[in-house]
């Protein structure tokens, strides 16, 4: 398993654990004296599961298991792969921090952080597809 896949999968587990922890906090918010801004983390809960866990796990496993491009360049661009990892997780982390902050104090600088988060996650998807597309093919037979 290549290092990038290991990073993706381990980070996916961390995202899943964070999502489940957040899920418990959101469930207890109505009955315990928890901070009010917690309710603004509801979208982050879903996105930690769907982006941080499911999509990230898929990205990591595809990088590992899909047919190689060639012997010289088996998994496409490693650099683009790492860019995908950094952009996806950086963007998701920014969202988790900035979404409740922007809801509590709208119109401030946090709004731009959300824009940056959106752009980073979109670029991650583009980088992933650019790198993975050439690997959607028949098994490499050395030609």
């Amino acid at each position: 398993m290549p290092p990038l896949t290991r990073w993706h999968i381990k980070t996916a587990f961390i995202s899943l654990a964070a999502a489940m922890t957040l899920g418990v906090a959101l469930a207890l918010a109505p009955v315990l004296p928890l901070p009010g801004w917690l309710v603004y983390l509801s979208p982050a809960f879903f996105h930690l599961i769907m982006v941080g866990w499911v999509t990230q796990m898929i990205f990591g496993v595809i990088f590992w298991m899909f047919p190689i491009v060639s012997r010289a360049r088996p998994r496409g661009s490693e650099r683009l792969g790492w860019a995908t990892y950094v952009l996806l997780n950086g963007g998701l982390l920014l969202r988790v921090v900035a979404e409740p902050a922007n809801s509590v104090a709208p119109g401030g600088g946090w709004g731009w952080v959300l824009v940056a988060s959106a752009l980073m996650q979109w670029l991650a998807a583009v980088a992933f597809v650019v790198n993975a597309w050439p690997r959607v093919k028949e098994k490499y037979r050395g030609e």
Partner: peptide
């Protein structure tokens, strides 16, 4: 992801 990015950016700005 394109639609998601637009929705998230729309929340910020």
């Amino acid at each position: 992801f394109t639609v998601g990015a637009l929705l998230l950016a729309n929340k910020g700005r």
